[in-house]
Design a protein around this nucleic acid. Structure first.
Length: 113
RNA sequence: GAAGUAAGCUGGGCAAUCGCCGAUGCAGUGCCGAAAGGCCGCAUGGGAGGAAAGUCCGAGCUCCAUAGGGCAGGGUGCCGGAUAACGUCCGGCGGGAGCGAUCCUAGGGAUAGUGCCACAGAAAUGUAGACCGCCGAUGGCUCUCUUAAGGGUACAGGCAAGGUUGCAACGGUGCGGUAAGAGCGCACCAGCAGCUUGGAGACAAGCUGGCUAGGUAAACCCCACCUGGAGCAAGACCGCAUAGGAGUGCAAAUGUGGCUGCCCGUCACGCACUCGGGUAGGUUGCUUGAGCUGGCUGGCAACAGUCGGCCUAGAUAGAUGAUUGCUGCUCCACACGUGCGAGGCAUUUCUUUGAUUGUUUUGCACUUGACGAGAGUGCCGUUUGUAGCACCGGAGUACAGAACUCGGCUUACAGGCUUGCUUCUUGC
RNA sequence: CGGGAUGUGGCGCAGCCUGGUAGCGCGCUACCUUGGGGAGGUAGAGGUCCCGGGUUCAAAUCCCGGCAUUCCGA
């Protein structure tokens, strides 16, 4: 789990990342990233209502937050905003699968080696 | 034992490591900030539901409006009670379904008025109507020689019994009556009105009366009762990120800047003080409440009273997650290995018990023969430890996430448990 | 949190207010026409009226409760 300062919260932050950021994707997830001027990273999750009911959507966001906790060490010096969008196959995916997807996309974005 | 019916409970458990949210305590006289406040460390003990869901009702709370009352609109609708309130709950009454336990029921008014009742049918609400019909007593015509008497005809006319249609045909059945008929008369039944008795009442029972009044109000409507509007993004407080209003005083008045290098033209513009409004954001509202729980008392019950104990989430891009171990329950398998191990499965067969079905006005009689019990038959198998059971193995473990707070309703839900009652069967 | 709208053949819609027959266009099938196709003509098939209850003699239509899609306001 990640604490509150690492969460993206404002609607205008989300729009900035969507409009000006780079995007990377797998079959389950989409990553948008845009550098910020803070000394840490921030991340926000977007899960559509089409994914399922509130239990399914909340659980998906919790699992993704736990993934980012695993990646904490590698991201400690990164200052950028991320938005993760879930696609439909992400609902049934295991923790390890989502974690490796995130690793792949962050590598592609050359934020993490 | 089987089938059913009603009510209630449960909603996997025990741990480990790393995290999230808020609470309490301690500490650095730490850091950020004008302030309100926020951030960082350690410890302790907390952290989703029976529906948290849908948002269909009702309330608290807050703001706005409001002398009081009425209209419109909306809602409710057997009676009594419970409740803060309700369209909820409890107990009754009437109606309907079921052998029964039990279940369902928007259930006021159709003589206040209006509308509608397709098709069919003669006729669909008007004391209406005559298609097939019945009669033709009375009057007409006519036959028997004539009168009387009788017959014929179906012209006038009478009738609403039978048929037909339809969800529904102007009370039903029977007897009398009549030309044929008719509540025309009578008896019983249904329904209506009045009275008496019982009941708190809905209503029930009885008596009397005149013989009769279609359905639909989840059609308009009438009657009785209820109802101001919005919602925690309500509202309160802080508020010099930034933007920006009003007033007063001073300054400037051919000034400065832009279009534009110049002219013309045009647009914009200073400083100080005071005042309120208020955006982003923050704090609060925010969890002690019609609260939970155990007894006692009253009540058929819903529920109320009283005594004791308890404090039990508070997020805001929205806190419960990740990785594991052991285990519960259900289903499938049982190849291999280990243990226990003599029957297991199927059945259009028979016997018994006889629920029940059919024939019949009823009974006798005949017929059908559920569930259970016993026997038989078929397959597999009885020491080469096979069939089966257990370990082992595999799969599954629902519906669903607090968002101001309560009381209900509705809807979703794997599996399991408990209790009451009903019907049938068997044994004692 | 509050307020609406829609659901009818394969597709797009009418009918609902005022209850009794489910209809229109495109598409589909067969036949005619043509040397063949298109166009045209004739005939035909195809419907749990979103789902479950109720009112009524009778419900796509009226009432109640769900489901799905969609729009608006704060």
């Amino acid at each position: 789990m990640i604490s509150r300062i690492h969460r993206l919260r404002e609607n205008r932050d989300f729009r900035r990342v969507f409009q000006r950021g780079q995007s990377f994707a797998t079959s389950r997830l989409v990553l948008y990233s845009f550098p910020n001027r803070l000394s840490h990273y921030r991340v926000g999750f977007s899960v559509s209502k089409k994914m399922g009911n509130a239990v399914v959507r909340n659980r998906l966001k919790r699992v993704l937050r736990a993934c980012f906790y695993q990646l904490e060490k590698d991201l400690s010096s990164v200052s950028a905003d991320f938005v993760i969008i879930c696609r439909k196959p992400a609902v049934d995916a295991e923790f390890d699968v989502l974690l490796s997807d995130l690793r792949k996309m962050l590598n592609k974005a050359k934020i993490m080696l």
